[in-house]
Computed example of a mutant assay.
Amino acid sequence: MKSGDTQFTSEAIDAAEPLFADFIEAVCKATARKNPKSIYTAVTKATKAFNKFARNYPGVIETEEREEIVTFFNQAVKQTGFDLDPSFDLTEEHRAW
Rank of each mutant, 00 (worst) to 15 (best):
E62H: 13
K78R: 11
K45N: 14
G4W: 12
L84W: 05
S38C: 10
Q79V: 00
K29C: 07
L19D: 02
F8L: 13
A49I: 02
D14G: 06
F82T: 00
P58R: 04
C28E: 15
K78F: 07
H94A: 07
F73E: 05
L19C: 04
E17N: 12
L90P: 08
F8S: 04
I39D: 10
E68Q: 06
A15M: 06
P36G: 07
E93K: 06
G81R: 03
G59F: 05
F72T: 00
N74T: 01
E17F: 15
T71N: 15
V43H: 12
A42P: 11
T9G: 13
K78Y: 08
D83W: 07
G81L: 05
G59D: 06
T6E: 15
E25S: 14
P86Y: 06
Y40P: 01
A26M: 09
A76E: 09
E92D: 09
D22V: 00
V77N: 14
T6D: 15
S38A: 11
V27H: 07
A49G: 11
G4L: 07
T41Q: 15
A16N: 08
A16D: 10
E67W: 08
G81D: 05
V43C: 15
R33S: 12
A30G: 07
E68I: 00
I69S: 09
E93Q: 08
A21P: 01
E65C: 08
D5M: 13
K48D: 12
S3I: 00
K37G: 11
V77D: 14
E17H: 10
Y57A: 09
I24L: 14
A96Q: 10
T63D: 12
F53P: 04
V27F: 11
D83L: 13
D85C: 09
S3T: 00
D89H: 08
E65T: 09
R95Q: 09
F8M: 08
I69A: 11
